[in-house]
Design a protein around this nucleic acid. Structure first.
Lengths: 189, 189
DNA sequence: GTAGTTAGTGATTGAGTACTAACTTACTTG
DNA sequence: CAAGTAAGTTAGTACTCAATCACTAACTAC
């Protein structure tokens, strides 16, 4: 048994929960599965967090923060097409290396309505606030052009959905997506 | 009690299941809830379908078929920008009138990986096949231009995600999205 | 009208799950 | 070393849920 501070343990739980929730969603993931991945007993999770929802929320917020940081770091010192290219590449890398982050995003989107109908408006607010922060993060380096930013986010969502569906990288659905292809398409207009 | 043929009842179940699964996802929806919405006893669902998964699959397939038909009908006899405009408007209408269809789409995307890891490859295949049929349906009227079709699908996925997150229609995230705005943006390049 | 079929229900079961309570083990500090 | 505290566990509870079984009610064809 490896002892850790509660704070460190909470970090481990967030990482494990992200992977598990990414796969099964809120209802399809048991606290048992999360605890097993952390390497800790299931009841102990309830010492670290007030309940399952709190764990989901923490994982969701972390996921958004990480994505924001990814774009902020990738676009640092760049603007316009350079920033677009850099952020696109950074996201492609995330998909390959941290697929759970993108699935967690999807899971948190689909969880909003259910939470809202159960009277939990806080969760939806948090998700929307996260989205806006993400939006603003890419908006500035893309030249503060609303259409440009919207298009960038749209491509991101398409990538998320295609990846979620499990299309292999060589499949033709990805053809029109890579930055080079996009730029080529735009230059030909 | 209203008696129906098994086939009619199955249709009712698919409609009810679409609404319930759209809200709670596969694991967040009980067969009890579906049965209640249909107005039938819970065990009877298992006479009409072999199991819960079969109900989810049927609802998912129906949802894709309906979306394909929506685009096919909207773009009938049109091509290029006209078809783009018509399909965009048709989708906007679907979001307003049949929000469950769009949420069901999201739920089916996020269900693929979990199903795949449980050894069910059929479901993922079905979802991907549905996507490709949808893709081809919009590809032809859009002039068989890969970049154009990809962009259209990307905007569709962004709309799905924003709607899932519960952004109200007057929120600024929708600004860059409506067809007029997109065309305006492109004409200014 | 009666025999057969189709639509539908009530009761139940067994597995899983979020969460609690009571207890134990290890670290830290005076 | 003694006492307090922080980390962690085992056992258990109350509940939900998919699926099954045995049964009843209604329609249909002869």
């Amino acid at each position: 048994m490896v002892r850790m501070s509660a704070e460190e343990r909470r970090e481990s739980v967030i990482r494990a929960a992200t992977i598990e929730f990414a796969r099964g969603g809120y209802h399809g993931t048991s606290t048992e599965a999360i605890a097993r991945r952390v390497g800790v007993s299931q009841p102990y999770l309830f010492r670290l967090f007030p309940g399952k929802k709190a764990i989901f929320l923490a994982a969701a917020q972390r996921c958004v923060e990480d994505t924001i940081r990814t774009f902020a770091e990738a676009s640092e010192g760049l603007e316009g097409e350079d920033a677009l290219h850099a952020m696109g590449n950074a996201y492609t890398k995330v998909i390959a290396e941290r697929p759970e982050r993108l699935m967690m995003q999807m899971q948190m989107y689909v969880a909003v309505k259910a939470a809202e109908e159960e009277g939990d408006h806080e969760f939806g607010e948090s998700v929307r606030a996260g989205w806006m922060r993400l939006w603003d993060t890419v908006h500035v380096p893309l030249g503060a052009d609303v259409n440009e930013t919207t298009t960038f986010m749209a491509y991101g969502m398409l990538v998320n959905c295609l990846a979620a569906m499990g299309f292999p990288p060589e499949h033709r659905v990805w053809e029109g997506l890579y930055p080079s292809a996009r730029l080529k398409g735009r230059l030909e207009i």
